[in-house]
């Protein structure tokens, strides 16, 4: 239905290798992500998907390889720098402030955008108040977008899991990211929640043109919403292409279904 245009390569991962002591988590992985696309990383448990995301995100520092983001070349990323360059992420195990309201949790995502100092913010003095109002308006748009108006003032810890995931997405969106990294956004959800989440991911992609890199286990979901898919197995890349290409890839079938002996 949409006429969303997939642009140039925005993120290019070249020959990344990452090991923890003797354990090789990633071996010589290369792939790229184009602007405005939905890119999935799939693979069996322990394939290195989250490690890959952590390398892009600057949480892990790979021993080899490099990452090019918007033409800038990096040996490894630094997490604050990454955030400032417009990469946001959500977590497999939620990283929210359980005792704080939905609104406040999403507000924390605006932290990088706040210019006034701690004291001014605490006193809500002059420019600080104006700034907070502007940020609040932005957050309200996200709340509207994710359809969580009812829970605006509810402490996050009291919400069901599926909704917490949505708040996590909201917090990431508050950073106005150009690239959004989603680590298993649909883990532990029921079918209806998965459908909702898929719709929100596509809407984000469509409405804001946000590039999306996601890790997901549910094959149905991945094949439905991604433009291209990378398949990892034991830290190695075994497939890369459109959902159809990947689905028919012998190596991928073998990794998922096992081989006949």
């Amino acid at each position: 239905m949409s006429t969303r245009k997939i642009g140039e390569v925005i993120l290019d991962v070249q020959n990344i290798s990452l090991s923890f002591g003797g354990v090789k988590a990633l071996t010589d992985i290369s792939f790229n992500v184009r602007e405005h696309e939905v890119r999935a990383i799939i693979g069996p448990n322990g394939a290195g998907k989250s490690s890959m995301l952590n390398c892009i995100n600057g949480v892990y520092q790979p021993q080899q390889g490099s990452i090019t983001f918007r033409g800038q070349h990096f040996k490894h990323m630094n997490s604050r720098q990454v955030a400032e360059m417009g990469v946001a992420r959500t977590f497999q195990n939620l990283a929210l402030f359980k005792g704080m309201s939905v609104l406040d949790n999403i507000m924390t995502g605006r932290n990088l955008k706040m210019k006034s100092g701690l004291l001014a913010q605490a006193l809500r003095w002059g420019p600080a108040e104006r700034e907070e109002l502007a940020q609040r308006e932005f957050v309200e748009r996200i709340i509207d977008f994710l359809e969580i108006q009812l829970h605006r003032k509810t402490p996050v810890g009291r919400l069901p899991y599926g909704l917490q995931k949505r708040v996590d997405l909201g917090r990431a969106l508050a950073m106005e990211p150009q690239v959004l990294l989603l680590d298993e956004p649909m883990a532990g959800m029921n079918v209806e929640e998965k459908q909702d989440m898929s719709r929100f991911i596509l809407d984000v992609n469509d409405e804001f043109g946000t590039t999306i890199v996601l890790i997901e286990h549910d094959m149905g979901v991945v094949m439905d919403i991604s433009d291209r898919v990378v398949v990892l197995d034991y830290g190695k890349k075994i497939g890369d292409g459109t959902p159809d290409e990947v689905r028919n890839n012998e190596d991928v079938i073998r990794a998922y279904l096992g081989t006949e002996h």
Binding site: M1, S2, T3, R4, F145, D203, D206, E207
Partner: peptide
């Protein structure tokens, strides 16, 4: 207009 931007 949400989600309808690209409808033609």
């Amino acid at each position: 207009p949400r989600g309808l931007r690209h409808y033609d």
